[in-house]
Write a protein that binds this DNA or RNA. Structure first.
Lengths: 347, 347
DNA sequence: ATGAAAGCGCTAACAC
DNA sequence: GTGTTAGCGCTTTCAT
């Protein structure tokens, strides 16, 4: 460290110390081309000695790559409640799992995710501009809203992008998703196996494909078991909405003995209400959640739930995105993950 | 949009369309210097027409600013369980609130947070390198580990940085924090007011200053109320650790009638155990949490808790950091927030 | 195998 | 008030 307070060392500095040209240093750093063994060592020594680290802006300027991707959470833009959207979505354990999977995958690849929230038209334009002028190499999109225009915009801008979950309306864009129907079937099968005969379900917002698929899958499986009618109550993927839904279900169908909630948060809410009404879970009512996120373990009894491997799915998104960045002409692909049943105490 | 598939428009392109020089376009875009009204309009029109957006890399190369800051979560680097750390921390609602506050503040300022996890020495070096060679203008650090060397390293590298919470050992670095002692006192006062006489507390990890302060504040307040002895059980800020701690407390002090848990997650765990042992909350045992995060609302009864305005604190961190970026010679500052009591059903 | 030199897109002196 | 010009630090032909 010969230069205490000064500007960071540049390629030029390293080259001078090593007694070679900038180009050579650049080559050994990037591992391109053949460079003489001996020279490589000399250069590496000079790098260590100077504490050199490449300037990403300069590199990016010439390579047109940033080593950065956007991790964007997109949602409905209720005017004037922007921050509310952000806090709602970041409070959901689901998003934490996505972030965890993405970071876990990217960390070893020298790529960094920048967090963006796209909850208004303005914010969406910002995201688009950010991507279009190359501030990031691509985007990972978690959309919470069916009418989200961002997927289509990204596709038409030909920005490398991967979605979590299939978009509500067809868009030529890559995504990872879960076999929601299979997951719902897992729940239905267990409920029937347990002997439940009055089964109901708390769905997610029905404009979201995942909610629809879970509902459809559940109904189909129940029908196949000889239960053509399944009462439903629509929730909003929050614990509070799960409570409201369960109240309604109980009011309309007091004899319900099995409930499938489309996520763990709503299952948690349902559990609260069930217990409040003196129903024992799982003895009086069997309850199954979806996701297998943190709250499932915090409940008493712990939630039997359909596990969605969110971290793996997020990692796969990142993998796909990087592939797309390397080869922009790749056509859209999708990877579907299989859910699994995690049996705990609630069913 | 005259150039369909080609490279994004540059300043040069805009200048040509507007019939002025690059410099002039740059001036109107950055709002510097006086530029003739009429010309401004012409330029803006040209910008719209071309769909121009400044290239951040190029700009950053000359300004030495990136418009990016690092949001780093730093923690103990248990060898080989890197991803476990990431998923643990991102699963904590606390971190979501930090992210939400940070994003909320930065979004209007054109600054973007990049997410980094520093859980190993290697990862910490990466963060440092990232910052030192100017890939980000500064760092927001949430440290979960008392022995974390990162704050000191950041300080000595003279990287603009702000911590969430005062570092365990003195470091000349800015931070925001909560008056933990005052928060704990709020809890103690309520418990005493409710008539509890056998009060215990579940602490956070005792090497973390925040945990220590909450404990000290609680003990002091209880002592002042005439209760010199307060049984404690140390937890790890997770629901599961709260369960273990509560079990132990109950085993050693079956008559306990008031519990203060150092965060909501542990309070939730404690609640599970209490109810499992047939204790009614709040009738038999009054229970108070800390944070006022999501899980507090999902519990039954809902948690009475000491609110920590995490989003505001995070926003303040971001504000302080940007100030520091603008004036790097600023000396370290700290801002302490006041907690407040949120009374719900558990006490 | 290595060096010289051009240039990525932008800002900031400096002239006019 | 506006244009000219010199780089910022890097990669990458193109020579050698």
């Amino acid at each position: 460290m010969s230069r205490p307070q000064t500007a960071p060392p540049t390629l030029e500095d390293v080259a001078r110390v090593a007694g070679v040209s900038r180009a050579t240093v650049s080559r050994v750093i990037n591992g391109t081309r053949n460079v003489d063994r001996k020279i490589q060592e000399v250069v590496r020594a000079a790098v260590d000695q100077t504490g050199y680290a490449p300037n990403r802006a300069a590199r990016s300027l010439v390579t047109k790559r940033t080593g950065t991707i956007a991790l964007v959470v997109s949602g409905a833009g209720e005017q004037g409640e922007e921050d509310a959207f952000a806090s709602r979505v970041f409070a959901d354990p689901f998003f934490g799992r996505v972030a965890s999977g993405v970071v876990g995958f990217l960390r070893t690849r020298g790529v960094h995710p920048v967090l963006m929230v796209a909850d208004t038209d303005r914010a969406r334009e910002d995201v688009l501009a950010f991507l279009r002028q190359g501030s990031a190499d691509g985007a990972l999109l978690v959309s919470t809203h069916a009418e989200d225009p961002l997927p289509a915009r990204l596709a038409e801008a030909k920005v490398p992008a991967v979605l979590f979950a299939r978009p509500a309306r067809p868009v030529p864009i890559s995504y990872v998703d879960l076999d929601h129907q299979a997951g719902a079937k897992l729940a239905a099968d267990l409920l029937v196996e347990l002997g439940c005969t009055q089964v109901a379900t708390i769905t997610g917002p029905l404009d979201v494909p995942a909610s629809q698929n879970r509902l459809t899958g559940f109904r189909d499986a129940m029908a196949r078991h000889g239960f053509p009618y399944v009462p439903i109550a629509e929730g909003g993927f929050t614990a509070a909405s799960g409570e409201v839904a369960m109240e309604r279900l109980l009011a309309e169908h007091p004899g319900v003995d099995g409930v499938f909630a489309a996520n763990d948060l709503m299952a948690q809410g349902a559990l609260n209400i069930l217990q409040q009404h003196g129903k024992r879970v799982p003895q009086d009512v069997a309850l199954i959640g979806f996701d297998d996120s943190g709250p499932a373990l915090a409940c008493r009894p712990q939630l039997t739930t359909v596990r969605q491997p969110v971290e793996d799915m997020a990692a796969e998104m990142a993998r796909m995105l990087l592939g797309q960045v390397d080869d922009p002409d790749q056509r859209p692909r999708s990877v579907i993950f299989e859910p699994s049943l995690v049996v705990r105490g609630s069913a």
